[in-house]
Design a protein around this nucleic acid. Structure first.
Lengths: 235, 235
DNA sequence: AGTCTTTTGTGCATCGCTTCACAAAGGTAC
DNA sequence: GTACCTTTGTGAAGCGATGCACAAAAGACT
């Protein structure tokens, strides 16, 4: 008989919790800089912008790291969360696409904060290849597989135009990569076992626009425009 | 008695649905470029990377825009989703912070795709003020309120260092802004009625690292490191 | 040692989202 | 007009996340 998952998913932490751990970690680092030794769930929750019950339940998934009547030891909790997130080891990251966005990412200090290291920059444009950036030469995309293997890259950031993104994804996956952070505005098609996270600027703006429109409607009293489909299509 | 919401939230579209509408819109635009006239929920779902039941339920919140036995008219659906998202009107966006990221955002073409227009660039650094970018001069942050009012800005993108973000947020909110897209790695404290969406590069990487670590553990058979707290703290 | 205060960890009810499965509806062919 | 095929729209079940509320635990004070 196959060993079924004992409780949840064999020490499975809910996705929603995992997504908040970085938030807690940042808040804790802030407290640490101000030399705070311990913090209550109430205060930490306030700093992280969540409610305290949720925070406690999230942390309880990692283990019992608090002290009743006192709170959590800041340094210890930082360590435990870092360990859970895998930040106690070093992750080599490759950035593919050295346009405006790729440059911004490479230069972004906080991004390389703890645990992450930009190990490679790649681009298809020969005018960009060879250029130096954050103390590193830009390599040509032809050497993608070689660079990934030689430098132990395990996470790839795709910052190419939309048209190139799928092709890049296919190649890095073939080279053994299973974690991709995608900035290109396309839905990447990937096999099971590969994680893709997407950051999409225009999507975020559109969501904001939706809510902004709602607020405006609520003030003026309902939709500003009729369903002038035909008219709109003339343009 | 107060009029309770008739069905859901008085034509309330679930947040999860709103977050996916931009995705559908992009997929539809892709189909439109390839001159596809109609599309089934199955095919559109495939293109958007969701399952078809979810897609149909999402679209049903907007109205009954499909034809049974046929599918959805691509152009008509594009129009309806655009209208729902408020993209049939023009949104003036201000970008505060013209560092690497701010520049990338200003230049990012797809970002200004449809409905959005970069109406202002602001920075505190006098070395940057006056510089021209995408046909627009960078204004000094002192003129924030003035610029927002004069140019009808309704969405502000914060691309400043973390230390300046809260201050910028406070000022733009005081100036009447209720929609903020925040790239700075801090939790913004805002009053009710103000929407903040956050894009955080390091958070995304950390989530990827977590899953990557999990995969590695699954292969080698459980955690690679003991709970060497004391040792780790010596460093 | 006992009482009091504080704060964690969690059982439980609730909520919202997802997914299934199918009846209703539109189109087409004969 | 009827029979058949396709695809939508949706009731209902399932699932995971949220938030309440409180018992259990730890330290402080007498």
């Amino acid at each position: 008989m196959i060993r079924r998952m004992s409780r949840a998913r064999e020490r499975g932490i809910p996705d929603a919790t995992v997504a908040r751990l970085p938030l807690y970690l940042r808040a804790l680092n802030g407290l640490s800089e101000r030399s705070t030794a311990t913090v209550s769930s109430e205060d930490l929750a306030l700093a992280a912008g969540v409610n305290s019950a949720k925070l406690r339940k999230d942390l309880s998934h990692l283990g019992s790291y608090g002290t009743r009547g006192v709170g959590y030891d800041v340094q210890y909790l930082i360590y435990q969360i870092s360990r859970e997130l895998g930040l106690t080891q070093d992750w080599a990251v490759a950035i593919v696409g050295v346009g405006n966005l790729g440059r911004a990412l490479a230069n972004y200090g906080g991004f390389v904060s703890r645990g992450f290291r930009v190990a490679a920059l790649l681009d298809a444009d020969t005018a960009v290849v060879g250029e130096h950036l954050v103390g590193m030469a830009v390599d040509h995309i032809d050497q993608l597989e070689e660079v990934i293997n030689q430098r132990g890259v395990s996470i790839v950031v795709i910052a190419t135009p939309a048209s190139a993104a799928q092709q890049v994804a296919d190649r890095v996956i073939a080279a053994g990569i299973t974690s991709i952070l995608n900035f290109a505005p396309v839905v990447l098609n990937v096999p099971d076992g590969v994680d893709v996270r997407k950051v999409d600027l225009s999507t975020e703006l559109q969501i904001l626009a939706f809510h902004e429109q709602r607020k405006a409607e609520r003030e003026t009293g309902s939709p500003m425009m009729a369903d002038d489909w035909a008219e709109a299509m003339d343009a």
